[in-house]
Amino acid sequence: MPPDARPKSTGGGSHVASRLAQQDPAFVRWLLILACVAVMGLLVVLPVVAVFAEAFREGFATYWANITEPDTIHSIGLTLFVAPIVVVVNVIFGLAAAWAISRFQFRGRTILTTMIDLPFAVSAVVVGLAFMLLFGQQGLLGPWLKSLGIEVAFNVTAIILVTTFVTLPFVARELIPVMEAIGSDEEVAAVSLGANGWQIFWRITLPNIKWGLLYGVILCNARAMGEYGAAAVVSGRIEGKTQTMPLRIEYLEQSFNSPAAFAVASLLTLLAIGTLVLKVWVERLTRQEIQEAARAADTGGAH
């Protein structure tokens, strides 16, 4: 399951900290803060710095040559092709699943929720194997599809399928709690005023959930671009054909071209950093919106 990243309630922290009984002695405070900084520095910051240091070890010209090498360019293109498809498909699924689960009570609802979580728990390698058993040469559907002229295994289609499996929960998991928290009052009101399904979705639901949706998209995209284990199994890792960026990193590393591997890794690290920056930005916007709504409610009540 993804770490819970819903915008936290703010304001609570500062007045809680001011309560005397909850205060730790100053030296304990600073000791613990220092320990945190050390842990994060060692575990997270150092590796990120090292990626860029290794990528630029032989200068910018080499870095650029490594990035613009034709097969690397192809892998970047492939990743940029696969990820948007996966994101769009999982957004459609996420919206449908969140609507079903947050708006209706039906038998099997909890089983449905558990099933959405399943890809978090299953190893990516097992996912790859499962799709090979379906679409491989000795697979259940492989020979039949081949007779129709469709080849899935060792193909971009297989990469798209497994990546969709692996990133399936992200959008739905982000949307369900948001939609449950908002409730269905506004939508029910819209129905009573004669709105149809699409009008409700575009004018009420979507504006309400837009930040949650955006955050789900960001996460889903980051994971889609970084998917390695399942793609490694089903893609066949054919250079210049089915090599996504993470697979390219592995290939370059194994051919002892470490600077090139780190050059590709630096791009994916930028993606991760960008994802975090976007996340902070989305959280800030959500907070502002909540505050504005509260203020509007206050002035509305005063009149």
Partner: peptide, 20 residues
């Protein structure tokens, strides 16, 4: 915000940089 980095960083990158 850095807490979430291991979640956003592709695992292949994590493996590559930790091994080096």
């Amino acid at each position: 915000s850095l807490i979430d980095l291991p979640f956003a960083l592709p695992t292949a990158v994590a493996g590559l940089v930790y091994s080096s």
